[in-house]
Design a protein around this nucleic acid. Structure first.
Length: 714
DNA sequence: GCGATCAGCT
DNA sequence: CACAGCTGATCGC
């Protein structure tokens, strides 16, 4: 019974703390899900050797354990019907490595957001099980996806590793049916940062803005000023490279780029030519090299003129709910900086995600360092359905206080959205069924854009509220400090409503294609002005602004940062603490910007032109019709003999929650993001709120200019 | 000689 | 500041 018992994924890790001294969060997902034990995901050893089908969410080594082991290789040779399913990009990246070449004929890539039926056949008995899988973008690294499985044992979601801003789940059309979130039995969740201490992590856009400005402040000094991006070996930094490249018109130097040969949108921003001002090359002794002003690729000068180098190390920075610190760039040495960067969702983002999905069960895939399985479960439980029902319905009493409204128009909501709104996944679907005949029956269900009944279940409204409550409640417990904000949120549907009736628009027209990965990563938004406004230019007085984009010496020391708002920007050479000539003034505080979305950068988007080999689904056949008994939104017709009942078993889609309101959920979780966390900010005064409300009531828009500096700097 | 595991170090 | 690795040492086959 190798199956992992829900709740005890590891089979035995329950409740134990990570051994001290460990270096990182510990993965506890063993590869199998309770509902569908015949398939294995992201684990390929032990019990998983018996799987009827394999799934790989993304191309990071810690999710590929056993993938090239002799045992699995043998299994493959004997079981000709066993395949590995993943996104087209993941397939491409995986096969670039010679070590995994043997998988070549056994990988089937599935387009993002294209429900696909797979037959899981037991080669010995001939027993067959049908399952429909849908890949949803996970925002973790190129090709990363979440897997939504629908079959007789219900609908389950395996998130793999993900970084999704709050509200993004609400915008994933295929997580919905009939205007509501699908009835999801279990979620196997990326809980890497599921600990209150990781409450907030600046958004991609905020982090990117910080890096862009720091880089700008340096490389504009002369052609001999170069930056070295000290990235750990892993996929996931590409959006940083592409955005920097685009911003400055300079390709980024890397050691290898053949893995991107079929991904022009990434490839074009990279180079193996060392004569560029932006490097992301690596070397085992890189740090040592750097000390001697040598880049990992070996160069120290150009045209016999020595280079001036700074290093920027992307690393995760987090902020507690009450934390005041806000810098996304921290100076760690005379020529060294850390830049905020995260591939994983923060605590509040995780809570937002889970509370929106509101599954019956949620199982952590990871136990964060320093915590235990039990603690993580305690956090997740209140966000699941069961607890909802038991939850007392609590309706916030007085509303008011900082109105979420504020955010409405000003930042956040906005920009998070752009991720989806603007760049639509450009379709281009090659429906390519290639060689049919593929053993595994894979059928792409034609995704007909549904006519989603937009009914916004009124009723659901309540539920929604409920769930929210819960999460609020959750907040109380987990976050020592949080209380304050909680309640109000509940309401203010306004914002939420506004856009996201998730289901509808943007996202794919289902027929869409491969979503460009940039849909997730290219954050042009803030890059533009706003972020910058404050500081680079703010040379002189930054004072007014709050921004502290960065600080010297890392740390929590808030104080430091502030001081320099004064500093000048890139131009100035003044340094702090003796470290001079280095830009230390570029500070970007993550709450500053008001989203600016700019889509400018999105160009076509990347579509790996990969010669597909989508097997099976012979087009014709591919049109399946699932009994919609399930909660399927996609209309499909099983070509296969049997009317596949791909439903989640429950034929009655239970609808719950009203998507539109969803955003509320975040409110609390993220509330602080915007408001409280703003260090400088003070709570709105009553009069001010009154004023804001009046404007709102009058239908006027409220624009929050980045925090007035006035409040800042204590 | 290879793989798995672990310590150490980014 | 903890993303995801790599390297090297040890042990077993």
């Amino acid at each position: 019974m190798g199956q992992s018992i829900p709740g005890i994924p590891g089979g035995g890790l329950g409740g134990e703390a990570n051994p001290p001294g460990l270096t990182g969060a510990m993965s506890c997902f063993q590869g199998q899900m309770a509902e569908y034990p015949n398939i294995s995901i992201d684990r390929f050893d032990r019990e998983n050797l018996k799987a009827r089908a394999y799934f790989l969410s993304h191309c990071h080594k810690d999710h590929m354990k056993g993938l090239r082991a002799p045992a699995l290789k043998r299994r493959l040779e004997c079981s000709l019907k066993v395949y590995l399913y993943c996104s087209p990009v993941t397939k491409e990246l995986l096969l670039t490595s010679p070590k995994y070449r043997f998988w070549e004929t056994r990988i089937i890539s599935i387009e993002i957001e294209t429900p696909t039926q797979i037959s899981l056949v037991d080669e010995a008995s001939g027993e067959k099980e049908e399952i429909v899988v849908t890949l949803l973008p996970a925002g973790h690294c190129p090709g990363s996806v979440m897997f939504l499985f629908q079959g007789d044992q219900g609908t389950v979601l395996y998130t793999g590793d993900f970084r999704l801003a709050k509200g993004e789940a609400a915008r994933m059309e295929l997580l919905h049916y009939g205007g509501r979130v699908k009835d999801i039995q279990s979620v196997y969740l990326d809980t890497t940062f599921c600990d209150p201490k990781f409450h907030q992590i600046p958004s991609r856009g905020e982090c990117l803005s910080g890096v862009v400005e720091l880089v700008r402040s340096w490389i504009t000094r002369s052609p001999y000023h170069v930056v070295w991006l000290n990235c750990k070996a892993a996929y996931g930094y590409e959006y940083l490279f592409t955005n920097l490249s685009e911003e400055f018109g300079l390709q980024v130097h890397v050691d290898k780029l053949d893995m991107f040969r079929n991904m022009p949108d990434i490839l074009h921003h990279l180079t193996t030519d060392r004569s560029t001002q932006i490097h992301a090359c690596r070397h085992p002794k890189a740090e040592e090299y750097f000390q001697w002003n040598r880049l990992p690729c070996g160069i120290t000068s150009r045209n016999r003129i020595p280079l001036h180098t700074i290093s920027i190390k992307p690393s995760t920075m987090w902020f507690g709910e009450r934390t005041r610190k806000t810098n996304v760039i921290v100076r760690t040495g005379e020529s060294s900086y850390r830049a905020c960067f995260s591939f994983h969702s923060s605590y509040s983002e995780i809570k937002d995600f889970l509370s929106y999905i509101c599954p019956v069960n949620a199982y952590p895939n990871v136990i964060p360092l320093g915590t235990t399985m039990d603690k993580v479960i305690e956090i997740l439980k209140p966000l699941c359905r069961s607890s909802q029902s038991t939850e007392p319905k609590y309706k916030p009493l007085g509303k008011l206080k900082r109105a979420r409204t504020i955010h409405l128009d000003s930042e956040e909501e906005e920009d998070e959205h752009d991720l989806f709104d603007d760049p639509l996944p450009v379709p281009l679907r090659r429906k390519v069924p290639n060689q049919r005949t593929l053993h595994p029956k894979v059928f792409q269900m034609t995704a007909v854009s549904q006519n989603q009944p937009e009914k916004l279940g009124q009723s659901t409204g309540c539920n929604r509220a409920e769930s929210m409550q819960t999460s609020l409640w959750a907040n109380f417990i987990d976050c020592e400090e949080s209380n304050s904000e909680s309640e109000e949120e509940s309401q203010i549907p306004a914002s939420s409503q506004g856009d996201p009736c998730p289901v509808t628009h943007h996202q794919q027209k289902v027929d869409a294609e491969v979503p460009q990965w940039e849909v997730f990563f290219k954050r042009n938004d803030e890059i533009t002005d706003d972020g910058l406004e404050n500081f680079p230019s703010s040379t002189e007085g930054g004072g007014s602004q709050s921004p502290k984009l960065f600080t010297d010496s890392d740390g929590e020391s808030t104080h430091i940062s502030s001081q320099n708002s004064s500093q000048s920007t890139h131009i100035s050479e003044q340094g702090s603490q003796g470290w001079d000539s280095q830009p230390d003034t570029v500070l970007l505080s993550f709450q500053e910007r008001n989203s600016g979305d700019m889509t400018s950068l999105n160009k076509g988007g990347y579509k790996p032109r990969i010669k597909e080999n989508l097997p099976a689904s012979q087009m014709e056949q591919s049109v399946l019709c699932l009994k919609d008994s399930s909660s399927e939104d996609v209309t499909t017709v099983p070509s296969v003999g049997e009317p596949t009942t791909v439903s989640g078993g429950k034929h009655i889609p239970q609808e719950r929650r009203l998507p539109a309101l969803s955003t509320n959920a975040d409110s609390q979780s993220s509330s602080d993001f915007e408001i409280p966390s703003t260090p400088e900010a003070e709570l709105p005064k009553r009069e001010h709120l009154q004023y804001l409300y009046e404007k709102l009531a009058a239908g006027e828009s409220i624009v929050l200019d980045k925090r007035k500096g006035s409040l800042i700097d204590t």
